[in-house]
Amino acid sequence: MSLLEIKDLHVEIGDSISGRGSTPAKGKKVLNGLNLTMEQGEVHVIMGPNGSGKSTLTMSILGYPGYEITAGTITFSGTELNPMPIYERARLGISIAYQTPPEIRGVKLRDIIRIAGSKPLWNPQDEPEENIATPLLKKVGLNPEQFRDRDIGVGFSGGERKRAEIAQVFAAMPKLMILDEPDSGVDIDSLKTIAVDLGEYIKENACACLIITHYRHILPYLKPDIAHVMCGGKIMKSGNPFEIFTKIEEKGYCEYLGLCPPGIKEETERGMKI
């Protein structure tokens, strides 16, 4: 039995989804027969031009409302995920580090880390020294004194946001972690520490990892087994991650996928239509 098995997945997205740059109109088909299989402990990279359906894939795995599966299945550890609500999927062992987490005033970072780890909110009466979030914050390089009592996301820098996300993923001890562009908006030094932490965690815990990225910088630390190139709502090519990156960097998506003549890159920018 595979950890994650996605078969012939078709997804349409509705108008309840807002705030995403590449959101198509209501009832827009985004995934068109996507297949993906991940085994326990495997690290997969997903790349693809903007609008190719990468985010829709993650949202569909997580179970976000508004992402309607019109055909196909997503199975996790033998359990069919649709129509299971988001929180039940989280409890099954799926955890995501968001690209752009929301700000939530009044909800403390220490508490969301504890929640991710299925622990109650911090109560100083029972637990004078907070001891769940504190070590995890240290682990991801956030000073617990400064960050424990901060409101989620409020006033965080790009790097701090990523680290806070990863602390929550670590707390959840997932079977599958999804990293949505863990390298966007992060400086090179932060990126390295984040990547080293993630790499160690994945190795120690035999945690499967699905990474969405446009860049290769973190790959040496995460040692991916395979990369997939998405386009038009399905996976077009899969193979050795480093070889694929080299080719895409050289040729661009369009030419690499053999979809348009060399030199026409504008189409790629806007998202490809096939």
Partner: peptide, 28 residues
């Protein structure tokens, strides 16, 4: 915001728990 609710739900809270947490946080 739906994004806030879904975020908390993806950490394991059901919708009621997530709403209660946001409301309490709001009144912190």
């Amino acid at each position: 915001q739906q994004a806030q609710l879904c975020y908390l739900m993806s950490r394991g809270l059901n919708e009621e728990e997530a709403t209660a947490l946001i409301v309490r946080g709001f009144l912190d």
